[in-house]
Design a protein around this nucleic acid. Structure first.
Length: 596
RNA sequence: CGGGGAGUGGCUCAGCCUGGUAGAGCACCUGGUUCGGGACCAGGGGGUCGGAGGUUCAAAUCCUCUCUCCCCGACCA
């Protein structure tokens, strides 16, 4: 048994001023962690015990489907050059040089290292499938570490990688992870949602995120309480109530809108709803091109949305095949639209397809740099809309898509929002903040092909294995548990991940009999496999109760006055329910408690 | 990187505007009284006021530069 008086559990009465979210405050106050620098934390005794219990669960479940490796955190540049990510990762990667001047980096993830092993060692389809995993530190030079352990620069990740001969095999590996993740998070006692995730530009056919709904989170999730639909807002879609069109059959005509630049101003001025307007957003796609001046090639990207909608940048990234984009600058807007911002619209705008006028000679020669015009599906089938006239102080009315302009593509580009209909069942969606604790991802051939990993298939042909990658943020299991289980006095963890199962609090250690009884109970409970923290400190009962409430241990036994009647109090931290138990029956009492 | 805030003992903070012997509460050490929800009394230890430079007879306080941390945004395979 562990005796509190001998341990280092530096609890704090007050939270440090710079802690904002519950998990940050309580991890510090409960003596789990201490900060070393921005985004870098030391895990003290209780914190490390909780982390160890979490990793034990993860390891146990992962061992059912995969094999644990241990990989270097320090990687040579060449491996990351091979996948192309040495440059892609930019400032997010910690980089250093060894004494010989060779470039190294600290691993942000381990796709490259695992694929390198596969490349060198896997020869035949007969060796597939493989699932390899590790539980290890990852390093990311975050632009802004925050919220205690939620976003940090060094953290522990369980990451696994699957190698299969074909897509059907990948489906199986993916499904195994899906189920394993559910088991892991269930065992950790978390309430979570599995959501469809944005899979990025590169070959990601399928991706799920495991999310804990929490205001401390950094993602937004749209969910339907009726049918269970849930998706990251980056990916979520919705059904819209039909919007009313303005009456008439007229052709586009200019209206004078002096100084009216925003959707709201124009709508109010003309007495229409923002839903009857087209919002025109001007972006510039940016691509590296050694031949172009400045090494960068740009192309205008124009996005049309219903006036009351907002652009989902993740969706636009997907449409652009992962290329970067940024808002157009004023001079670029003038050049493309021949109009200042505030009066932009798609009518008579040269674009890469559709029937609009193709402008000047030079533009024809630069087909490649013609603007891309994407229109959100919410505009499809609408008529008589209002939009900018590409002329200062003028807008156009009676604009009908498909007649007055022709988009390059109709595509879903808007953010779904609360109260819009679930795409599956139409029930109003809910949108809330969430913290990502796990992510499973079908990588496809990105790494095996770029790094040249191949095996021979049964026809003796060289083929690249198809890969998946699957991550769990170990610390985030702890932080999300605290975010969802805390009150004024502290937090409580599920027994599976708490540093101890039970804390025993003799109210006065100077009464020898109380301490002896507490020790006796401790030994008995350890006999049935519970881990016990005995608070043998010579402190007043109030202090010990406050600390016991603070540090996340799910059960407490008060050994006090009632010992004379042969009883102790058993308190369940989450509910604060207290029950008297006869000392000789304490084992049975706990057997029951810990089963439910 | 843009915007905002903060660095004074281990923690929370006052003092700064208006320059003049560094403070409080909690924590810690000693003794005593207490002992079921963060006790009380008495005594005590601990701070080059983030750092550098400057102004001044004199700087925690005024000026310049700089470092660090937090929050919002941008960013986030």
């Amino acid at each position: 048994m562990h005796r509190w008086s001998q341990l280092f559990i530096p609890t704090l009465r007050e939270a440090p001023a710079d802690a904002e979210v519950a998990s940050h405050k309580y991890l510090i106050r409960a003596g789990y962690i201490r900060q070393l620098a921005a985004g870098l934390y030391s895990y003290l005794f209780l914190g490390q015990r909780a982390i160890l219990r979490i990793t034990a669960i993860v390891r146990e479940e992962m061992n059912r489907i995969g094999q644990e490796f241990y990989l270097p955190a320090l990687h040579p540049r060449e491996v990351w050059e091979a996948s192309g990510r040495w440059s892609v990762m930019g400032d997010n990667m910690f980089r250093l040089k060894d004494r010989g001047g060779r470039d190294l980096c600290l691993g942000m993830t381990h796709e490259e290292i695992m694929t390198e092993i596969a490349r060198k060692e896997l020869r035949s389809y007969k060796q597939l499938p493989q699932i390899w995993y590790q539980i290890q530190s990852k390093f990311r030079d975050e632009p802004r570490p925050k919220s205690g352990l939620i976003r940090v620069r060094q953290f522990t990740m369980k990451d696994s990688y699957s190698f299969d001969i074909d897509a059907a095999g990948l489906d199986v590996s993916y499904q195994k992870h899906y189920e394993t993740y559910r088991r892991i998070f269930d065992r950790c006692g978390l309430k979570y949602a599995v959501v469809e995730a944005h899979s990025g530009a590169m070959g990601g056919s399928q991706s799920h995120e495991f999310m804990v709904m929490s205001d401390a989170g950094e993602d937004m999730v749209a969910s339907c309480s009726k049918c269970g639909y849930a998706a990251n807002l980056e990916k979520a879609t919705s059904q819209l109530a039909p919007a009313e069109d303005l009456p008439g059959d007229g052709k586009p005509e200019e209206v004078h809108t002096p100084g009216m630049k925003t959707i709201e101003e124009v709508a109010k001025f003309l007495g229409v709803s923002p839903t009857q307007k087209i919002k025109t957003l001007a972006y510039m796609q940016v691509e590296a091109d050694p031949k172009a001046p400045g090494g960068k090639k740009t192309r205008p990207v124009i996005v049309l949305l219903r006036g009351d909608h907002s652009l989902n940048e993740a969706k636009l990234t997907t449409v652009l095949g992962g290329k970067e984009f940024r808002p157009m600058q004023a001079d670029e807007i003038e050049r493309v639209f021949r109009s200042p911002a505030g009066y932009l619209g798609p009518v008579k705008l040269p674009a890469s397809s559709g029937g609009g006028d193709i402008g000047s000679h030079t533009q024809k020669l630069l087909l490649d740099s013609l603007p891309l015009l994407f229109a959100d599906t919410a505009l499809k089938g609408r008529k008589n809309l209002i939009t900018g006239a590409n002329k200062e102080n003028y807008h156009l009315r009676n604009v009908t898509p498909g007649r007055d302009f022709y988009p390059t593509e109709w595509i879903d580009l808007r953010n779904a929002s609360a109260e819009e209909g679930c795409p599956n069942c139409g029930h109003p969606l809910e949108v809330g903040k969430a913290m990502e604790i796990g992510h499973i991802f079908k990588l496809g051939y990105k790494y095996s092909k770029s790094m040249g990993a191949t095996v021979l298939d049964k026809d003796g042909k060289e083929v690249a294995p198809i890969m998946g990658s699957y991550g769990i943020g170990i610390e985030r299991i702890l932080t999300s548990a605290i975010e969802q289980n805390n009150d004024q006095d502290g937090f409580w963890l599920s027994r599976s991940i708490a540093p101890f199962d039970v804390v025993i609090t003799p109210t006065n250690v100077n009464e020898g009999s109380l301490l002896q009884t507490a020790e006796h109970i401790a030994r008995q409970l350890e006999g049935i496999g519970l881990s016990v923290l005995l608070d043998d400190r010579d402190e007043r009962p109030g202090v010990k109760f406050k600390d016991a409430d603070l540090v996340g241990i799910p059960f407490r036994i008060n050994v006090g006055k009632k010992v004379t009647e042969g009883k102790v109090e058993v308190v369940t931290r989450s509910t604060r329910q207290s029950q008297d138990a006869n000392i000789p029956e304490i084992e049975g009492h706990f057997r029951q408690l810990t089963q439910s």
